[in-house]
Amino acid sequence: MVRIGLLGCGNVGKIIATHQEGFQVVGVFDQLHEHAASLSELTGAKPYSDFNEFITADFDICVEAASIVAVRAYALKIIEHGKDLVILSVGALADDAFREDLISVAKENRKRIHIPSGAIMGLDNLKIGQISHIESILLRTTKSPESLKMNVSTRTLAFKGKAKDCIKLFPKNINVSVAIALASTHEVQVELWADPDVDKNIHEIFVKGEFGELYSKITNLPSPDNPATSYLAALSVLSLLKNINSPLVIGA
Rank of each mutant, 00 (worst) to 15 (best):
E80I: 09
I4P: 07
L139S: 07
L6D: 10
N220F: 15
A66C: 04
G22P: 06
L42P: 08
S147C: 03
N243F: 15
T43S: 05
K164F: 13
D30L: 01
A94Q: 13
S147T: 05
P47K: 08
D165M: 09
L138P: 07
W193F: 15
G122D: 10
L238W: 01
A163Y: 11
I174P: 02
N201R: 06
S117D: 06
F23C: 05
L232D: 07
G129Y: 13
E204D: 14
G44L: 08
E41T: 07
V86G: 02
T56K: 15
D101W: 00
L139M: 12
T185P: 05
Y48M: 06
S246Q: 06
F159D: 14
S184V: 15
N52A: 06
T18F: 14
Q189V: 02
L192Y: 02
V178S: 09
A158Y: 12
F51R: 03
A194H: 12
K149L: 15
S136Y: 09
Y215Q: 09
L240M: 04
Y215F: 15
V86C: 04
P145Y: 02
I202P: 02
N109A: 13
L169F: 04
H19Y: 00
R3S: 13
H133W: 07
Y231D: 14
D101V: 00
D199L: 00
H186Y: 13
Q20R: 05
H19K: 15
A194T: 06
S239N: 07
S147F: 02
Y74D: 00
A179R: 12
W193Y: 15
